[in-house]
């Protein structure tokens, strides 16, 4: 007579695993950390003079403590910033007030007319709100991303974010670099 194999009571197993499941559900969060990535410049060497940049190659953006914008010495609005930045960086009409253009030879893209060394200079007050600052950074990034998209569409037929070839990505990045320079902070106004 075969021996009856002992049975394991698995009914409570489901309860235990349910308990564990709820515990993990509560203590954990699916965090999708997102943000605007930037690179800080290395500290300034006091002995080295900063290079002179021609006025036409700089696009100045100032944010005051009341979160108002001053773009190229004229009051502006956050909704206009992207268009102004795009116009500055691409200089379609070769305007002498906008940055100098230069023929650049970039691998995969070939010869293309690009801004020589256009720089966006961003300066904020200590009293500026962080929300405004991020919005300005966001608009400027949007301008650069749109220019990259246009170039990528033109040369490779897909949007920049959909490029898969490392070489193509690098080529577009070299053609339109993120050139947002932040001025050395000055202590004006209160906290």
């Amino acid at each position: 007579m075969p021996r009856k194999s002992p049975e394991l009571n698995t009914g409570s197993m489901a309860d235990i695993s349910f308990l564990l499941l709820t515990f993990f559900l509560l203590t954990s969060s699916i965090n999708t950390d997102m943000g605007i990535t930037r690179r800080l410049p290395p500290p300034l060497d006091p002995n080295v003079k900063p290079p002179e940049i021609k006025q036409r190659n700089i696009f100045t953006v100032l944010i005051n403590q009341n979160n108002k914008l001053l773009v190229e010495n004229a009051p502006s609005d956050i909704t206009l910033l992207k268009i102004q930045a795009k116009e500055f960086l691409s200089n379609p009409a070769n305007d002498p007030d906008l940055p100098e253009m230069e023929m650049k030879d970039i691998p995969y893209i070939g010869k293309i007319l690009l801004a020589k060394n256009a720089v966006i200079s961003l300066k904020n007050d200590r009293g500026t709100s962080y929300d405004m600052y991020v919005q300005v950074q966001d608009e400027l990034t949007k301008a650069i991303n749109e220019l990259r998209d246009e170039l990528s569409m033109d040369k490779f037929g897909v949007r920049f974010s959909q490029l898969s070839d490392e070489g193509y990505i690098e080529a577009v990045k070299t053609a339109i670099p993120i050139t947002i320079s932040e001025a050395e902070p000055e202590n004006v106004g209160g906290q």
């Binding site: 009293g127 709100s129 962080y130």
Partner: peptide, 10 residues
């Protein structure tokens, strides 16, 4: 936090 002033961030 979005209401922070830029001073401390700088």
């Amino acid at each position: 936090d979005k209401e922070t002033r830029m001073g401390i961030v700088s």
